[in-house]
Each structure stands twice: as C-alpha cells, then as structure tokens.
C-alpha cells in the first residue's frame, strides 16, 4: 500500500467559555484518522462540525489541542504538522500591494526556499495554473477566480508535502468553481500532492475525493470511498449516482446532529 502521510490520534479541541457563565465548547471530540500519501481527502460536514478547527490545528494556527499528530512515527502534541504546508483559504488572501509574482515571492521567502530555485518554481506553477500572462498584475486587476488560482500557485510554489484547502471554491460562481475543480484535479494528478479539502458541498466532494470523511459533532461519522475511475467526467451519470449516496449519508448525519 501507499505510505502514510500523517495520522491523527484522539484529537480534541475545546474552546474556553466565552465570558462569565458561558460553557466550554468542544468542536473536535476524539478524532482519529490516517491520511495516505498522494491521497485526495474531502472532509464533508455541516457548518460548525469542527472542520475548520481541524485545519487550524494541522496548519499550526491553533497550537492548543489535546491528542496527537503523528508523522513518520514522530508524535506531536503541541503545534503543527512538521511538514511543508500549502494552504488555500476560502478567500484568496493575497497581499493587495504586491503583484501576482511578488505575492508568490513573499511565501517563497517566508518558507526559505533557496533563491536560485524561485524562477523555476514560479515558471512551473504559473504555467500549470494558466497565469503566465498575469505575473505583473495586481490582485485588484484580476477576477475572483484568477485570484484564487494565484492563491493556488502560491500554495504549490512552496512545494508542500500536504495541501490544506478550506472551502476554496465556495465564493466563486458555479461556472468558475467548476473549472477550478477540474483544473485542481488535473494539477493534483500531475503533482501527486496529498490534499485535505474541506467543504460542505457534497457534489464537489464526490467529484474531487478518493475518500470522503463525513464529519459531525467533532468526529468522523462515516467514511465513503469514491471508486469512480479517473479521469472523472463532471456530468457523467456515475458521478450523480455516487453523489446520491454521499448526499444521503450527509443528510442523515446532519439531521442527527441537528436533533441533538
């Protein structure tokens, strides 16, 4: 079998009560999972199910959790995955005072990539995302979809061992989102990255994922393997069929969560 990228053991996250008389809020409650290298994982869940908190822990934005992360037998109990991380946020989060290329330079510098490799990395990923012509554009001169593409270039240029994505296409119109999903799968197949993609859109998850983890109440409630062969056709009946099963489980789990 393929190698393990990382594992999560008994992970919990509780927020301290807000103000006096508040109650502590547990958003992740004993989460266990194993991610394999080069796997495309989608975490599907209703809002408030703990999926964003999970990404915050993996990326190191939130070092305060219980349980452990494990990479190559190393156990980490506070802090982030000791892997190079690329992150795609819901919004592009570009620095508006820098050109497209300078935005990428910023993370190349931050992640301490040797400067003699910058040109090669940028050439490769700008081309892969179809943005060669826009290197000298400022973010405000580009459309929302192009900005998110640039954010993807930025995430890829640091040569991440793992790519975290937090509903990156939810802010785009349907047509642009669809193009981006197809392009993302292409790029993933060309680069072989491990991807953890958080979403609340079941069709998106079905189209993208090798494996969908349906999350609710801070735990993985169900694991669904999508065995539709790749390359997948966005509009093929097999996709609709697979999505129907995913959607059913998702709805049932969301209803159970709401009933609590």
């Amino acid at each position: 079998m393929t190698e393990v990228a990382f594992a999560v053991r008994n992970l919990s996250k509780t927020f301290a009560p807000r103000g006096e008389g508040g109650t502590p809020r547990t958003v992740i409650d004993g989460l266990n999972l194993t991610i394999r290298k080069q796997e495309f994982i989608c975490i599907l869940g209703p809002s408030g199910c703990g999926k964003s908190s999970f990404l915050n822990i993996l990326s190191g934005l939130d070092p305060d959790y219980d349980g452990e992360l494990e990479v190559n037998g190393n156990k980490i109990q506070h802090g982030r995955l000791p892997l190079q991380i690329g992150y795609l946020f819901q919004e592009p989060r570009l620095l508006p005072w820098l050109t497209a290329e300078a935005n990428v330079d910023f993370v190349l510098m931050a992640s301490a990539k040797p400067q003699e490799r910058w040109a090669e990395l940028k050439d490769k990923y700008f081309a892969l995302a179809g943005l060669e012509g826009f290197r000298n554009h400022y973010p405000h001169q580009m459309s929302g979809g192009m900005c998110q593409r640039l954010a993807l270039v930025r995430a890829l240029c640091v040569e991440p061992e793992i790519l975290l994505m937090d509903e990156p296409f939810s802010g785009l119109d349907e047509l642009t989102g669809r193009r981006m999903r197809m392009d993302l799968v292409d790029i993933w197949r060309k680069t072989g990255k491990t991807i953890i993609f958080v979403t609340h859109n079941s069709y998106e998850a079905t189209f993208l994922a090798d494996r969908i983890l349906v999350m609710s109440k801070g735990q993985v409630q169900k694991e669904i393997v999508i065995d539709v062969p790749r390359p997948r056709d966005y509009d093929h009946p097999s996709m609709f069929e697979a999505n129907r099963d995913v959607l059913r489980s998702f709805l049932k789990i969301a209803e159970d969560a709401a009933a609590f």
Binding site: S59, I85, Y87, F89, F106, S111, A112, R154
Partner: peptide, 8 residues
C-alpha cells in the same frame, strides 16, 4: 494568519 501558515 496567511503569512503565518506559510512560515513567515
């Protein structure tokens, strides 16, 4: 937080 995720 974007900058911090990218190790700035």
């Amino acid at each position: 937080s974007m900058a911090r995720v990218f190790d700035a």
